[in-house]
Amino acid sequence: MKRYAPSLCIAASIAFLYFIRPELGRQAALKSASAMIEMLRVVPPVFLLLGLFDVWVPRQTIIRLMGERSGALGTILSITLGAAAAGPLYAAFPVAAAMAKKGAKFANIAVFLGAWSTLKIPMFLFETSSLGAVFAVSRWLINVPGIIVIGYLLEKFLGPEDKTRIYSYEGEHLNQA
């Protein structure tokens, strides 16, 4: 129950906003509700699929494909998986954490997050129709080396203790903080 305190605070702020500026408060409530529906469209199936992934995919497979010694294959795979995704970035966090748990290299996880955030193909199509092909294609191409560099720098900057924390991710750990 204590962990719901922040959500309750925000709900209270929206209620407060409703009292001082009814129109804004109403909008905030509606927008939060629509953000919640957006979340429910993607996140529960993602967790259900992660459950299957956890049970069925052997650790060895992920280590081979995306682990420490996966090399360029691991990076390309991370980019492909991230770019093929749809849905907001927050849905990528549990996926990345599940990959980490199965032995994926940290840089690859960061590359996957980067690709999901900015290389998503559905987004790219939208971007092309709004801002033009030159803009969308250039931005996509400039981002590919960028997310790889960011991924490897992250790997370099983080100490072993930071990585252990990520690699040992289990649902239970979320209860402690």
């Binding site: 962990r3 719901y4 922040p6 959500s7 605070c9 925000i10 709900a11 702020s13 929206i14 906003l17 905030a28 409530a29 509606l30 927008k31 939060s32 509700a33 629509s34 953000a35 919640m36 979340m39 996140v43 529960p44 967790f47 259900l48 699929l49 992660l50 459950g51 956890d54 049970v55 927050y90 549990p94 649902g171 239970e172 979320l174 209860n175």
Partner: peptide
């Protein structure tokens, strides 16, 4: 596992979604 990990992170999700709305 899916249910447990979803319920574990749900409070954080709700807070973030409320902030997005605000």
């Amino acid at each position: 596992k899916a249910k447990k990990s979803f319920l574990n992170i749900l409070p954080d999700f709700l807070a973030v979604l409320g902030i997005i709305g605000l």
